[in-house]
Amino acid sequence: MGLTNEIIKQRLTDKFGEQLTEWEVPYGLQTFRVPAEMNLKVMQFLYDDEELRFRFLTDLTAVHFPDRKGEELSVVYHLHNLIDNIRLRLKIYVPIENPDVYTATQLFSGANWMERETYDFFGINFIGHPNLIRILNVDEMDYFPMRKEYPMEDPTRRDKDDEMFGR
């Protein structure tokens, strides 16, 4: 296994410089932040580069942070280099009023449904997606249910309002 987190970081910093931020290695998985409009450029580089070879999209999902003003929605990509057997996580943040992200379907066919799922639950607008419609929820649904403003329990019920035991 020749490729390590340090080499990946070095290679990416050489190419993109200061644009990649928030380098972390939680539980051994190299994580960094990419500017929202550069997600495809970085992933294309990771895919094409003869040393990095991240050609397998493991997972794609989103997270909602209502407190982070201007970057409420985060899209998280998990990439895998099957040859050197190393994983990578890259994140982008977009504002909730304007959640536009470039689609990865040109690079990975598997991103098609994963992006549809992310759109379905978080309302991320993947620009250039061939068929961006709801996938698991009904077509008539007019909101994005995984956002934090939709609580699990009915907020009007008093018996469910338990101050004792957390959220």
Binding site: I135, L136, N137, V138, P145, M146, Y150, M152
Partner: peptide, 15 residues
């Protein structure tokens, strides 16, 4: 077409 037995596990798990 999929989603006929979607049970919102990811949402439930947050509570």
């Amino acid at each position: 077409t999929i989603g006929y037995i979607h049970r919102a596990f990811e949402k439930i798990a947050e509570r």
